[in-house]
Design a binder for these strands. Structure first.
Lengths: 204, 204
DNA sequence: ACATTTGTTAACCAATTGGTTAAACTATTT
DNA sequence: AAATAGTTTAACCAATTGGTTAACAAATGT
């Protein structure tokens, strides 16, 4: 058999396969055998490298979360204005999620199933922190740059407008009668649409 | 044994138990035995009344969807202006979901897992229809009442801002560092906050 | 060359799961 | 009250599932 390089060794083969299965089927719907098949290896190897389904799942989850968190963080903590942050975030985040469409749904779904799970994430560094954003919103409100709004509500709105379409895709597609290409087009539009919508609402 | 009335007969006991288990654990995570235990009856009864796990699940899903759909429909199809629709929807929908917190997540999650499933829902009457809303948005845009926006995008925005906080509750709670009572308070605020946010953005 | 560690496999195992069955119990009909 | 139809139960079943084991193969070190 051909020698594997670092990107094709068994351990990462397993992680990649597990990622794909867990993210589409969830913890409960995923089967160890299916993960092994997709990785092209024996089921016993899953346990050799990750001990149990739970630990393999946690490895996948942490991996996914650590991909998502920096996207939030960079926007929250850079030095641009609120307006610039909103524009950057909407454009970047929608592009990012379009490349990882299962990510937000996976994370949100599994956190709903096991809310204690996020506590482990909070301990790790790189967990998104809202402090700077909060102060910035308060300052811009005080200076009359944007209308009065609580940072938390604004943050929820930004997240909602950007993330929801990906999570609720099957529902939305049917409600607005859009096929796959219609939907892609609408998502593409939203890279600026969402930012404009938010700015219009908060700009004085 | 005491005679059961219509609200306590076995069939609806099962449906209630199944609702509670399926909505918190999902199709894959739910166990027939657990549903039977919660209903206080023998597991064989589940099959006697609903034949299989799949059919029991579909009964629960249709039931849930038929609760949610009219909420969308009444707002989409009444005779008020877009602004009134937005205000009504935000207030009513948030109140409604606050009473059925697992509903949107359940529906969205299971539709993601099984996208074909919504086709069955579409056939049934009462499936939300956007036609009237679309025309109305176009008219109000043409008349200069609201800013230029596509009805589909506005609809997605309304849905996102109202529904997302419930779906992403565990994530949001941790990102903004809110305990249960903080979160309830923020949700309460959103009954007007969301409507104002949308109106601010689209009103000329 | 040999021994030891690391990686891999096929076969196996106990527990769980959705579903069935046959018998018992209860109400309804005649 | 006897027969019939509908409801409920305990015990059972085959299939699936996560996980283990023991033997085998491939590196690695000495």
């Amino acid at each position: 058999m051909i020698k594997n390089n670092k990107n094709e060794n068994t351990e990462s083969l397993i992680l990649e396969a597990a990622k794909s299965i867990f993210q589409t089927k969830g913890m409960d719907g995923a089967r160890m055998q299916e993960i092994a098949d997709q990785a092209g290896i024996n089921k016993a190897m899953l346990h050799y490298y990750y001990r149990s389904k739970q630990l393999l799942f946690e490895a996948v989850f942490k991996n996914a979360f650590s991909l998502l968190a920096p996207q939030l963080n960079t926007v929250l903590n850079d030095d641009s204005s609120i307006e610039e942050k909103v524009r950057n975030f909407s454009s970047n985040y929608i592009s990012f999620i379009a490349e990882h469409p299962y990510l937000p749904n996976f994370i949100i779904q599994e956190l709903n199933r096991n809310p204690d799970f996020i506590l482990k994430m909070k301990e790790s560094n790189g967990f998104p922190n809202l402090e700077k954003f909060k102060k910035q919103v308060d300052v811009e409100v005080a200076n009359g740059i944007i209308k009065k709004i609580k940072a938390e509500q604004l943050f929820i709105n930004i997240l909602a407008l950007n993330v929801f379409p990906f999570i609720a895709k099957p529902l939305i597609q049917n409600l607005i009668d859009a096929d796959e290409s219609d939907f892609q087009h609408i998502i593409e539009e939203r890279k600026t649409e969402v930012a404009d919508f938010i700015i219009n609402s908060i700009k004085k």
